[in-house]
Structures are given as C-alpha cells and as structure tokens.
Design a protein around this nucleic acid. Sequence first.
DNA 1: CTAAACCCTCACGCCACGTGAGGGTCAAGC
DNA 2: GCTTGACCCTCACGTGGCGTGAGGGTTTAG
Lengths: 237, 237
Amino acid sequence: MQYRTIGEVSRDSGLTVRTLRHYDEIGLLTPSARSDAGYRLYSDDDIARLQQVRSLQSMGLSLAAIGSVLDRGLAVRDSLEQLLSATDEQIRRQSALRSRIAGVIALLDQHDAATSGAMLQLIEELAKVEKHYTKEQLDTLAERAADLGDAGMRAAETQWTDLIDRVRTARESGIDPASPQVRAMATEWQSLIDAFTGGDPGIRASLGQVWQQNDDVAGFNAAEIRDLAGYLHSADS
Amino acid sequence: MQYRTIGEVSRDSGLTVRTLRHYDEIGLLTPSARSDAGYRLYSDDDIARLQQVRSLQSMGLSLAAIGSVLDRGLAVRDSLEQLLSATDEQIRRQSALRSRIAGVIALLDQHDAATSGAMLQLIEELAKVEKHYTKEQLDTLAERAADLGDAGMRAAETQWTDLIDRVRTARESGIDPASPQVRAMATEWQSLIDAFTGGDPGIRASLGQVWQQNDDVAGFNAAEIRDLAGYLHSADS
DNA sequence: CTAAACCCTCACGCCACGTGAGGGTCAAGC
DNA sequence: GCTTGACCCTCACGTGGCGTGAGGGTTTAG
C-alpha cells in the first residue's frame, strides 16, 4: 500500500487539485495520511472512495448528498428517485422555456425591429404578452382567445410549428420514441398543451375532441398532428 | 406622476423587497428618487423598466445580460438565440441524465441491495455501468484515431507490446523498479499513455477505469497490465 | 405619545469550486 | 551548499441571485 500525493491523484482522476482540497475541506474525502511537511497522502482506499464520489456525482447528486449516502448509509435509491423527479421537473421547465424563447424570437422577427428605439417598445409589449399568459392560465378558454390578441396568438402558433417540425423530422429519421430527445419533445408537447388549456382537464378533453373531429384546425393538418401525437405517445409507459 | 415605495412595488410585482434592493445594488433598476429619509421612490418609468426586466428574466437571461440589453442596446435577438441553443443543450444533458438515473435505479432494484454492505459494491459497479467515455471524449478519440491513421495505430500497438515485454522481463528478473533502466521504461510508459490520451486528464481517468474494470482490453491481459503498471509505479515517489 | 408597520444599510450564507497571494518542501543540477 | 522549478500548503475572496437576520431610523394610525 503506497500513498499518492494530491497532484498524482489529480492527474489520474482528472479532477483539479483545488477540487480535491475542497472535498477535504468539507470532509467528503479526507486523505488518510499526511507527510511530515503536511502534504496530503491518498491511500488506495481513498482512491476507491473517490471513484464512488465521482460516479454518484456524475448523476447529479450534491456533494452533501453523496456524503450522506457514503457515510451514513442513506438509501441511494431514495436519493436517486428524488433526483429523478427533480430532473423531470427541470426538463419540463426547460422545455416550456425553450418554446417561449423560440416564440419571442419569432415575434421579434415578425416586427423586424432593427432600431433600438422600436426595440424598447417591443420589450414592453413582450411584457404585456407574458403577463397575459400567466394571468389567463386562471381564466377560461373563450376569454383567453379574445384577450390574447394577434401578437400572442402568432407567437404561440410559431412555437407549435417549430415543435411540430422537429417531431416530424425525428419521426422521419426513425428515431426511437423512447430516446431522450424524443421524450423531451413529448414533454414540450405536453407543456404547450398545458399552457393553452391552463391545466384544466375539461378544456383539454374538449380540445382533444376538436382535433379528433376535424381535418383542419387553425391551418394545421389534424391527421398529421394525431399521427405525431401517437408517435410521441407510443413510448409513454 | 406619483412615486411608490419599495413595499408597494413589491406587492404589485410579486418580487420581494430584497430582490428590488438587489436590483438597485447592482445598478439594474435604480429608483429615480429618494425621500428625505432615504426611502427608495419608484416612478412610473421605473415600474415600466421593471416589467422589461421581468419579461427578459422570465426567459432565463441573467441579470447582467438584461442590463446589457436595456442599457447598452445589445441585440435581444442575439441574446435570445444564444440562450435558445444553451437551453437545447441543457435539455439534451438533462434528458441523458434522466435516463442514466432511471437506469441505475432499475439496476438497484434488480440487485435488491438492502444491506449497506452490498451497497458499496453496487456503487462501485455503478462506475462500470457508467459510460466510460462522454460523447465529447469519444469525438476527441475519434479525431485522434483519424490523425494517427491506421499505420500509426498499429505502430503504437507494436510499441506497447514491445514495452510490455521488456517490463515483464525486468520484473521477472527482479530488477529494482528504482533502477535507471526501469525508470526509463516508466517514462516511456507514461509518454505512450500521453500520446494516446492527448494529455486530456478526463480521458486518462476513463482509460484508467477501463483497465481497472475489465479483464481483457484490446487483446491485452488487463490484470497483467495493472500488475506491471503497479511495478513501474512503485518507485514513483 | 406609542406601537406597529415600514424603511434603511451592512454583512454573512448558499454551492462547487476558480483564482490568486504568500510562502514552505523536495529533487536535480551546479 | 545554493539555486531552480515543480510541487505542496493555508488563507481568503469571487461567482449568481438573492434569503435572512442584526441593528437602527421613519411614518402613520390610534
């Protein structure tokens, strides 16, 4: 059993020296020995523990959580499940965000605001549209349609066209609907629907009927939409 | 034109008082007046600016970026597009992470490790399950392989077999690992590794894991290699 | 006149380290 | 023995977007 200095461990592990010192500071990985000069000396066991830390960390566990798991024998499974739902939530939020950003970009393109003077106006309008979105998640569908106005509707429309394009591409490329990318799109799809229905199951149901019973909805080909939805849905369970 | 105090603005906007003060601190939103007692007084224009800040922030722009957009007239579109691709990247990573976590949970279920003793083993196995190489690393490796070319790769292989033979011989002859000949071999060993990893510590770490966790790597006996590496390494310090 | 509600300015805490500053240690070569 | 350079050490501040007090002044209703 031989000891390694912090620099050697750093080179072997790919972690920085500062990181290893940090782990020591917070008590996550304290080298089991020190040289006379105070150098940190890592044993083989220390290295093994470092491997464990790294694999747990690569799954997004916080250093504190890793410490709990390794030292106090906390349930890995529970930590991971918690992390899983947290990650799901993150993905949902990021996907919704993506749609919003794409929509706003489209909105900016439409208005073609090159001058910085017009830009400030646009940003203010943006605020209004945003405001409507959040407020109206509490209101009914009818009121929403009336209040949204032209710009907002067109923004939402762009989000849909954008997403539909990506799903169609994925589908035609034969990508497995269970793959992460497609699952992300499914999440995005759902969040766009939710944004429109405000989470009201009744509204969602009637919306579904609309798509089932028509061939053309607001300029979209309903059959294709049903088709793509089925594709996204096929890996749900 | 009437002024509002920070508490009123807070109630109207839903932001905390601390947040508004923070915006003042960093110069993002400085109220245009103060009362005699030093109270922050927000004008209608300040409120409008706050709306702009909020709508930009709701799309994930950093406060610094918002400041640049609002004050220096930086292109909103560019910021948003940059943000869009960043968000896409995030979604990809999160999705990949999600499936990893789910996979590991499934693995834990299969092994049904209730005892903390078995758990540590599992965590080590975890490292095996993890892909040894990240995508980027794989790309780097591929590039390197392309650079080296077929002939180069075969030449490197010959150098390895050659070196391994010499180290094995030295070892079996009981030569002191601290002797100059063996030290030379250690240097040679290291430089061959460096040639392969390109000096990337992450790749080196992954490579180390590969050798640690397999019995046969590219036709080499991993146990023997580990053994010889230990022999060379034993005189390092 | 007082109590409650409101406001102010420091200033530390979070998380996982990066990035110096300022200084000791160690092996190699002169 | 002395220098050089590559190591190593311990502080300690910075990151982002605030939360959360501490300690104190201001305004307003009763």
